[in-house]
Amino acid sequence: MELLFAATIGILVSTGVYLMLRGRTFPVVLGLALISYAVNFFVFVMGRLDVGHAPIIRVGVDQYPDPLPQALVLTAIVIGFAMTAFVLVLAVRANIELGTDHVDGMPQREGRDE
């Protein structure tokens, strides 16, 4: 299971990095979202894997998953949303203002398609 989970994070990172290296805003946003998943997983799994419990204190239960990474990831998910939204709006604004969604720093190459 550990290897499976590690591979999952790796795949999310790989696809995220690849997309972030594309030349247009939209794939960059997608890549950012994928990397956010990966980072959240990474922090989450630092509390080790645990199946079938919940961090809710109950009488008679004495095994709980690590609650701290969960709390950290919970806020990270929300902040990640805020960041994605911000980047999106930035992309929209840039597209409207510059008339292009290139991120390679050369807006004059507008419409350069291969």
Partner: peptide, 20 residues
């Protein structure tokens, strides 16, 4: 880019597995 992506993903996988 694919090379970079695979290296990054592989590295993270190795790191996570080592920790877990």
């Amino acid at each position: 880019d694919v090379g970079l992506a695979l290296a990054a993903g592989g590295g993270v996988t190795a790191l996570v597995y080592a920790v877990l």
